[in-house]
Write a protein that binds this DNA or RNA. Sequence first.
RNA 1: CGGGGUAUAGCGCAGUCUGGUAGCGCGCUUCGUUCGGGACGAAGAGGUCGCAGGUUCGAAUCCUGCUACCCCGACCA
Length: 567
Amino acid sequence: MKWTNTVVPTLRDNPQEAEIPSHQLMLRAGLLRKLAGGLYTFMPLGFKALRKVEQIVREEMDAAGALEVLMPALQPKEIWEQSGRYEKMSKAMYSVIDRQGREMELGPTHEEVITDLVSREISSYKQMPVTFYQIQTKFRDEIRPRFGLMRAKEFIMKDAYSFDASWDEADSSYQKMYDAYIRIFERCGLVVKPVEADAGDMGGNWSHEFMVLADSGEDGIVECSACSYAANSERATFKYVEAKQYDDAEKNLEEVHTPAAKTIKEVAEFLKCEERRLIKTLIYTADDKPVAVLLPGDREINETKLGHLLDANEFKLADDASVETVTGAAVGFAGPIGLDVPIYADVSLKGVAGAYTGANKTDYHYSNVNLERDANVEKYEDLCLATSGDSCPECGAALNECRGIEVGHVFKLGDKYCKSFNAKFLDQNGKEQVITMGCYGIGVTRTLQAIIEQSHDENGIIWPMSVAPYVVDIVVVNPKHEESMTLALQLEKQLEADGIDTIVDDRKDRAGVKFKDADLLGFPIRVVIGQRSLDNGNVELKIRNQEDSKLIEVDKILLKLKEIYRS
RNA sequence: CGGGGUAUAGCGCAGUCUGGUAGCGCGCUUCGUUCGGGACGAAGAGGUCGCAGGUUCGAAUCCUGCUACCCCGACCA
């Protein structure tokens, strides 16, 4: 492809709308243009790279035995009611009303459609295991689209669904997908970390996320410094430090005057004790009913874990007014003692004594709190956010925190969807059973941007060979020089014949402009054809992620390029 | 939805405080000189100053309302 025959609108300055490197680079390199928030057009080179990522995904899914299908993006509302997810998901779905007045949803995901299909088509153990997948545009009415392709309202996803006759077989389908994911991301040139994850609204009881480590990542990850344990912060657990008896457990409760000391820090300073000795009391409203949640004073709440415990459609930290109504005191003096709402406490508080907590009375706290004696705790549950320095639940070594971009997610769903769609089969004994399901997603467009986020320098993108829009960039220093152009076009033809995507920079600009754009676009291999070196029978070869360039004889360059491409 | 910010030419910005009819750099067009790491000169094209009201002889600038975009949180591939 000649540069002058395609459209590569590079920008010299970073657009003000982009914050993170990959988003800035996609815009600057002319790979992407915005239509509106969360909606982007792929420009010719961006689209080429996207297609390559898709193709890698497709090849590995095929190799894993998955069958490619294409499901409708437009889905009747009824199937969402049938799965019981309509209420939870409707906020995130774009709905349209057709001329019959029927409500249709633009698919945010396809568990319902595929399970409906499978319930009709699969009826025997002989038809399983089977895994279907598709690569398709998904629509989600995101609360806040962000960072270009990272969180968009419309994005391309590879979604796969496995169906098995038993849990054991489902495990092996899950493992196959897991392994395929590892290969896919490796082929994309990504360093990816699989982490244990929460299943969220998808349901099921076991899942892994594939994380691209990056400071700009939206997810928190906790990983062990010694063993292989790694988990999304939402799910991460850690070894609890035993609850302490700070003082004689039998001492009587006592009110302590703590004027104007509201925050944990202020109270701890006032009482001259460590923050951990305070019992933090958070008031939440779950489906409009108040509940109290107790944590050690030095800990943060893990709202995902709390959500599982409360099992409510909606819950949030109560506003100041509700807190005051519930506790009868100003915000900052809430405590579990005498509180007439359900009380849940973190497991590490079981058996605590000699602690402090709010007295539900403005400017007062209690001392000598023996939680089990003094408060009516409904349940002790793991509710804390794991953090750096906590002990690994597997091996006890210190945990570290980092951030990641979720590019893939695999779930074991069990019978969640198959049950509601009545997807059953007859086993060897002629007995009817519910099919066991798994689902597996890769954010294809997000993966593309994650590649850039992980592989760039101050001059631009550094594409891995496998997904570069063009592998070789032939820079013709002076396109009016006939010998240079002839050689460039001949080389292009030979490379293309070998399946090596090549672009010839035939613009009339000065060499510096073309070099800058070559770096910005991040083509893995650059060949410079200039009159000067050509007179000595040479062209220049430069690898994007290496410092130096070298001169290669004209008649050896083709072989050399093929060799580099294959390595 | 809550909190913060921004909106002036394709991109990056100044001008707004103190009202007087819009400017800079890059990019774009034409010509000339240049030509291996974002050249130089000359001549051009391009803007309802986000939108709608209001104040004023006069509004990019002051007032009111709205919208879009970006960042922080809940949602997620």
